[in-house]
Design a protein around this nucleic acid. Structure first.
Lengths: 236, 236
DNA sequence: GTGCAGAAAATCGTATACAATTCCGCCGGC
DNA sequence: GCCGGCGGAATTGTATACGATTTTCTGCAC
């Protein structure tokens, strides 16, 4: 309900209404307030934001292009439920592009950028030590923001958009298959990467980045979770 | 009309009507039947395909997410007109991801894949020697398909989709800023890359790929083309 | 002829209406 | 009791309707 109110207040924004709805839903998905598989009916979304189905539908379509929502013909839209294979591909893509982004970012980075990165790191650490759902959600967001900021620094808007997609989908994967409570990125690894950049040791930075991504993947249990709703579900 | 890479997904009236329209327009853009800057009004598109504005709008929205169409609020949709900076970023992105894709593809490639690649090459060569608009258009498509097939072989659907976007946008850039009539890729370079893959010389293949992309860029004149609609336009 | 205000036309943004499809419970047959 | 078919409700797919914004055209003053 309060999200609906938020949508109303920003009514006279520059963007078309569908964009705001899309952003609101995306944020909810990335922060894991919406679980994978949840049905997002057009009417419900429309009612929630006090708009017609037209706009709700447009927002859902947009999210499906980002891979955060899957729409099935004549059946509706659902929060994406990435398969293990999809999960592997997402992280494979990250391993493929993030070192390159890191290199480009390092080539253009300014002192101001570095201090911003460090501030992000600090914030991340602060949230980690806090308790509570909201802190947890903010932490998830912050740890993704580190990777996104590197993409931003790289100065390539296309890669930046791609990284936004990958980070968002990673959040879904972690929500589904993550095991440890340490929800997302190893915080300290972010710091080490910054250090390596500062000392202009690019190779080391890239190695750390790859290690970091691998580390996140290690925390996943990517076994096919079939229906499982059988005897196995009850014999424990 | 049987592009191998189009092995995308089934038919039987496939997806919702908007998708077909989107694909048709995308093809027209990539084959340069639609020039950058051309206005795509919702009504016109709808009439052209005998559907309502609703579907036309959905298709245009979809294309805007791919960067092939830019929609301006309350003004309409236009075939994208990438700025020189955008063009640089597109090719920068390709330099960043294509070597990685190539490596993954090489790791999974089969004999059958190689023969398909070679066949694509042959087709490309044949089209090159032909005259006429339609041959030219088919050639443009074929030269892009080489890169797309590598992405497909890599087995990563996410990277494949990203490459589809990059190749399509590259076509726009070449249409805008390309100088030589040799519309697109150096044909022979594709062959060399295949050879390097065949002999398992990955480093060489990557070097060739980077060189190949650089070669395409060399053919661009990325100077800001301001209005130019002034005296310069008439004094020649 | 030039320039500008204002109306008319065209086009987009959003809502609503209707058709098509799927989902779900009910019922009779076996 | 279980299975398969048959409405009715719910939901999506598409079209149309209407208000808002932009563009174009017209006419009058200068």
């Amino acid at each position: 309900m309060k999200s609906a109110a938020k949508a109303m207040q920003a009514e006279d924004s520059a963007e078309t209404g569908a964009q705001q709805i899309r952003d609101a839903i995306r944020e909810a998905i990335v922060e894991r307030r919406l679980s994978p598989g949840t049905k997002l009916s057009e009417s419900d979304v429309g009612n929630l934001f006090n708009v017609s189905r037209t706009l709700a539908r447009a927002a859902l379509q947009a999210l499906s292009y980002e891979g955060l929502v899957s729409v099935e013909k004549n059946r509706g839209a659902f929060v994406a439920y990435p398969s293990p294979e999809e999960a592997r591909q997402i992280f494979s893509a990250r391993r493929l592009v993030e070192p390159g982004i890191l290199r480009e970012a390092a080539a253009r980075i300014t002192a101001d950028d570095i201090s911003q990165l460090k501030q992000l790191l600090l914030e991340e650490g602060r949230l980690m030590s806090e308790r509570g759902q909201t802190a947890r959600r903010a932490e998830i967001k912050a740890s993704g923001d580190f990777h996104l900021m590197l993409a931003e620094i790289s100065g390539n808007a296309i890669m930046q958009r791609f990284m936004e997609e990958l980070v968002a989908r990673s959040s879904l994967v972690i929500a589904l298959y993550g095991q440890s409570t340490a929800s997302s990125c190893g915080h300290s690894e972010h710091g080490e990467i910054i250090s390596a950049i500062e000392s202009s040791d690019l190779d080391r930075a890239c190695r750390l980045m790859l290690h970091h991504i691998a580390h996140i993947e290690t925390d996943l249990d990517l076994r096919e979770r079939k229906s499982l709703g059988l005897k196995e579900a009850f014999e424990l």
